[in-house]
Amino acid sequence: MHGLINRAIQCFIRDSYGRERWIEVTHLADLGFTDFEVMLHYDDAVTEAVLKAAARTLGVSRETVLEDLGTYLVSHPNVEALRRLLRFGGVSFVEFLHSLDELPDRARLAVDDLILPQMELHEFGVNNFSLTCHSPHKGFGHVMMGVLRTLADDYGALVFLEHLGGKPGIEVIEITLIETAFSAGRSFELGARAG
């Protein structure tokens, strides 16, 4: 798994629960080190061990850890750059949803060895969508649940999300758009710089 993803998990736990809690996770996962390097690659088993350890330390399910990670990624000031990069996807939440198809390509433009799961948006009527995530890593759909929920807020849209499960390698999220301009949302200026 790419170091960026491992590092994201580390920063999520550190920024949300404190450095001590993260150190605890590294011990429990038997990492043998305390910091992931964003530009290196790690064995998938390492990531799985960290997720398992995090769920145990925080006393929540693996799915909850992943969804909270998704929320963190697009809302915490420390990772503002990522929110901005995603907001480049579209001027409205619906446009953003449609941009998810090209998210892996966009990610590769930025970091050429970062492979993100392929996603496919299906539209049923005006306000009903389903997002199919193709990923060998179980639980990616839960990360997307957190990302979508938070970005909907960001765009000021009101949505209802449901993780429909799936089969090995595939997870499906049902998205119901209740209102596109529910609130003002957060501003997004093209020329601003992530702090």
Partner: peptide, 13 residues
């Protein structure tokens, strides 16, 4: 603009 930001972030890392 997306690329400028993405590359700046990657360079920073």
């Amino acid at each position: 603009l997306y690329l400028i930001e993405a590359k700046s972030a990657a360079m920073e890392a």
